[in-house]
Computed example of a mutant assay.
Amino acid sequence: MRLSDFIVQHVDRIVDEWEKFAATLTPAADSMNSVELRDHAKAILLAAARDMNTAQTKSEQIAKSQGEEIGKTPTLDQAAASHGELRHTVGFDLVQMTSEFRHLRATVIRFWVESLTSPEIAYFTDMIRFNEAIDEALAESTAAYAERVTRSRDIFLAILGHDLRAPLQAIGMSSEILMRKTTINDADMAYIKAIKSSGRHMATMVGDLLEFVRSRLGSSLPVERKPMEMTVACREAIDAAIAGHPDCDPTFTSQGETQGEWDRARIDQLLQNLIGNALQHGASPHTISVTLTGSEHHISLSVHNEGEPIAQEAIGSIFDPMVRALNEEAGTHNPSTSLGLGLFIVKEVVNAHGGSITVTSNVGDGTTFTVVLPKRGEAPRSTQSL
């Protein structure tokens, strides 16, 4: 009997074996009933049998083996994807879920071989087609499972970041009130300033985390443009950096008309992250420079630091989230307080304003990030790394 016909005739027996095996995958299986354990097994098997009976060219076979969409089976994919999602929901780990497919493959082949009286050449083709179908189902199920894992993690991070804001605000307000008291000695004042500075760092990290999660969940970075003076924003960002780094003395130069329409809160994020990045990775806090130039329709902002250049292999991923490839072990001036999200947030702010950002880094010239922003709303421009 051909394998596809065998699967159809014995599908319930095969699914019984699936159920028995799934019941051993504890602790998640302990609380599952028969229907939940069997899940989409029957649908996957019947879809695989239909796929095996479908004519397939050599090129389609090669395409399927390489994971391309050509020749794939929608019903098989849908059943497998739903299985992956539900297994994640009930608490199976990825190893347990994939082991179900391994056991299913072995069960079908064992039952079929036991039923055969004499092998035929066509049976080899049946084996190939069945393995293709199971591999396709496994790939779809794993992809769906992984997507659920990622989304669950992002939602958790969003909740965590949101809930951390309240205690951080309380720390900031409390330290501000304590600093206003007149009876505090110098030693106590230093402690209070350290608490305030640490709270500000944590608030920045939480803000970056929330923006990252928002982008992961499919929400673009919202901006509300209002008239503002970029020179003022730069000076205030530098003042904030100095408050957190008393030994910091960056230089700032501004020329041209720097008035425009931007989202002030987003611009503050951009400036804090760029200046903070320069302080983090510069050879000395005294070699940080911020340059602002205004033209008729755009402003150009450059933040420069000396020190170890960014490795060339890291340039292409410098704006990716969770990437910290700025030679952190090369003796940077300050210990890291970053989640690896700062430059990602900078890129998102730049894109939301329809601007561009470039970075150059080498031994002789140091590292310079240059942001160009239109003074009025324009269609978004691509972010670049040079």
Rank of each mutant, 00 (worst) to 15 (best):
M1G: 15
R13K: 14
I14F: 02
D16K: 12
F21K: 07
M32H: 12
L37M: 01
R38M: 12
D39T: 03
D39S: 07
I44W: 04
A47M: 05
T54W: 05
Q56I: 12
I62P: 07
S65C: 11
L76T: 08
Q78W: 03
A80S: 12
G84S: 03
Q96V: 04
E100K: 11
E100L: 15
R102H: 08
A106F: 11
V108C: 02
I109H: 11
E114R: 15
L116G: 01
S118P: 08
E136Y: 08
E136F: 08
E136I: 08
V149N: 05
V149R: 06
D154Y: 05
H162V: 10
R165D: 03
L168K: 10
Q169K: 10
D186E: 11
A187E: 14
A190H: 07
Y191A: 13
Y191I: 13
K196F: 10
M205H: 12
V213W: 05
L221G: 06
E224F: 07
K226N: 11
M230F: 10
G244F: 05
H245K: 12
H245L: 07
P246G: 09
D247M: 13
T251K: 12
T251D: 12
T253Q: 09
Q272M: 09
Q272Y: 11
I275W: 13
A278E: 00
A278L: 00
H286A: 12
I288M: 00
I288D: 02
G294E: 05
H297L: 02
S302V: 04
S302L: 03
E308P: 07
N327R: 10
T332Q: 13
H333L: 08
N334H: 14
N334A: 11
S336N: 11
S338M: 00
L343T: 13
V346C: 01
K347Q: 02
G354V: 00
I357G: 00
T360R: 15
G364E: 15
T368Y: 12
F369R: 00
T370G: 08
V372L: 09
L373T: 03
P374L: 03
L386R: 09
